[in-house]
């Protein structure tokens, strides 16, 4: 129960963060990715703000013991290898992100706007996730 409430709260903060930072607007994201056009640096400030908070808190409170505030182990990825799925996956994601200006977080946050376009993106993204997970397992 406790985990559900904290997860709901974390999701809410991240959804607010994506909305307030304007990252929910694909045009804003495309403006950042369009280095040859009218470059819009906003996304840098969003990542910078996120890392400025996350990184010190992580290294101060979690890194050494790798446990939560309640002493239970953190579930962190064990893989350290730069392997083919990582590289191929990042390339495919980059192409999709560049075509649309939409990544998974903003796609989900935009659902409540109710636009057909975003619903199509979310449905195809979910199908893609199932396909991608299958490819990775083989």
């Amino acid at each position: 129960m406790k985990n559900n409430i904290t997860a709901l709260f974390a999701g809410l903060l991240m959804g607010l963060g994506l909305t307030i930072s304007t990252m929910v607007d694909p045009q804003r994201v495309l403006g950042f990715l369009d280095l040859l056009g009218q470059w819009d640096p906003t996304l840098i400030f969003v990542m910078g703000g996120g890392l400025a908070v996350y990184m010190p808190l992580y290294f101060l409170l979690i890194h050494n013991k790798n446990t939560t505030a309640f002493g239970t182990p953190c579930d962190l990825p064990s893989s350290k290898q730069i392997d083919k799925p990582l590289v191929v996956g990042a390339i495919l994601f980059g192409v999709g992100w560049g075509l649309s200006g939409i990544c998974p977080g903003p796609a989900l946050v935009n659902i409540s706007g109710g636009a057909t376009e975003i619903l199509i993106f979310v449905v195809t993204m979910l199908i893609g996730m199932i396909v991608g997970a299958r490819i990775k397992m083989t």
Binding site: P77, S79, P85, L86, V87, V88, G89, A90, I91, L92, F93, G94, V95, G96, W97, L99, S100, I102, C103, P104, A107, I120, F121, V122, V123, T124, M125, L126, I127, G128, M129, I130, V131, G132, A133, I135, K136
Partner: peptide, 14 residues
């Protein structure tokens, strides 16, 4: 197409 690529790419690329 973008949604499909984002879905496949983020799962393959973890």
């Amino acid at each position: 197409i973008a949604g499909l690529l984002v879905g496949i790419g983020t799962r393959m690329g973890s």
